[in-house]
Design a protein around this nucleic acid. Structure first.
Lengths: 256, 256
DNA sequence: ATCTCCGTTGTGGTAAGACCAATCATGGCT
DNA sequence: AGCCATGATTGGTCTTACCACAACGGAGAT
């Protein structure tokens, strides 16, 4: 009770100021202002991967909106994978390779019922090309990573779950070796979606499957190492088609 | 600074209830609860494209969090393209083809400096495959759409901006004709990024460029129509490589 | 002198209530 | 019957307050 203010005259107002932080579209909501503001900072070079954004309260005064609105904008950026917030520490722009996050694709999959065949097909288009590019561009380090992942595959034929992880890692490495970050990002996105599904059924794979799979990966690696773009693409194509066929068998005519 | 009220009474509490809406991970923040809740609704089939979500205030009571938290979750979903809010009307799940939005990719481009060549390369990988698939699967309606877009291209050779729009539309149509929604979504995403950049420099294209481009699109269409997967892929490949080369010339040795 | 512990401080995370703005449906008026 | 005003519904924003986590730094113990 006492004197908890209770000012009945609360005047919100005072908001149409601070319209100067560069490139303001007038037809935008306040939340979009936040997003475009951050985008402007990025395009100006004021924000680079690994940097920390100003505190939410500071951003709020800078842009001229309230903190919840700033939070809404940051939440949107976070969902897009552009920033990552760490409680108590701050909001950062992720360093490392560009990444898009597979959650959006996962939602689309749930909404539109993407089939396993469609996922394999999408992977095939991307990764067949990526393998070809990798054959002509892979650096020695990337080749070493690929070789290591092939070894890991052979070494984990007794554990389907571990095998699956290394499987994904190999394909990721191929995408990275393509030297094209956009391709790498797309492959990463689809691979994550694939992994999320495959994880549940990986245990059904027979040891023969895993052996064949390891061998196919090895052939892909060798083609890439030899600079044989056509061979790498062909090997990747064969691998993904066979894998798709294997899994169609596994699930029989019943489940999806 | 010492005695700032410090009212010990405030009892917000009352939140660890309502933990029943299915599949709750305990290690999640409240905002993630909202996202997983919606995801659960989708996976249950309670929400399909075109449906309207419960009002924010209702969702808040259903999930057991405050409205700002619900808004944060919805904002995240909105940024992912999973939902779309219309002021005064409600929050909906977009109908129509699956779509991912190019904004995240745009941010990544700004952050990591994707080059035009990399964009063309990514498009090439995806669309060469998409063209091949389209050749074997395109429905009569899709073929009609493609034919129409080719005609539009020839008809707008005098207006580079309009030409660019139809150009994008044609490639979108090819992706749609591939019959694979994932491929369609990815192509859409990269194409939008491409369009956003190309728009600024499209005016530099010579009429000869546009004429050549129209002709190449026509050849792609004819190969698809003829069911010639190899031909369609080859034509698309040639088209994208030549386009990339043209634009490298346009910008000369100076600008990016 | 060094190390450990703990509090201060800054940061993101959540909550509650109020009001604004756009939309839509409904009822009364013409 | 048709048109327009009005209210209810719903998303959008602001304000304030408090909680939770993390890093920094000083005080005490060893």
């Amino acid at each position: 009770m006492t004197l908890t203010a209770r000012r009945p005259s609360a005047r919100p107002a005072a908001r149409r100021e601070a319209e100067d932080a560069g490139a303001e579209r007038s037809s935008e909501g306040s939340t979009e202002h936040v997003v475009t503001h951050v985008r402007t900072l990025i395009e100006r070079g004021a924000l680079k991967p690994g940097d920390r954004l100003p505190a939410e309260r500071d951003l709020a005064t800078q842009i001229g909106v309230s903190r919840p609105t700033v939070r809404a904008g940051l939440r949107a950026l976070s969902a897009m994978g552009v920033v990552r917030s760490r409680h108590g520490s701050g909001t950062f722009i992720p360093s490392g390779p560009p990444q898009l996050g597979s959650e959006p694709l996962g939602f689309l999959a749930a909404l539109h019922g993407f089939t396993r065949e469609e996922m394999y097909e999408a992977r095939r288009l991307l990764e067949v090309g990526a393998a070809g590019l990798a054959a002509t561009r892979a650096t020695p380090e990337q080749l070493a990573t690929l070789a290591e992942e092939v070894a890991n595959l052979f070494a984990s034929m007794d554990d389907p779950q571990k095998f699956l992880l290394h499987d994904i890692d190999f394909h990721r490495a191929v995408a990275a070796a393509s030297g094209n970050p956009i391709v790498g990002t797309l492959v990463e996105m689809v691979s994550e979606l694939y992994y999320g599904r495959r994880r549940e059924t990986a245990a059904r794979a027979t040891e023969q499957n895993l052996r064949d799979s390891s061998e196919m990966h090895r052939r892909i690696y060798q083609a890439i190492r030899g600079g044989d773009a056509g061979g790498a693409s062909a090997a990747m194509n064969e691998h993904l088609q066979k894998s798709s066929a294997y899994q169609a068998e596994e699930s029989g005519g019943a489940t999806v």
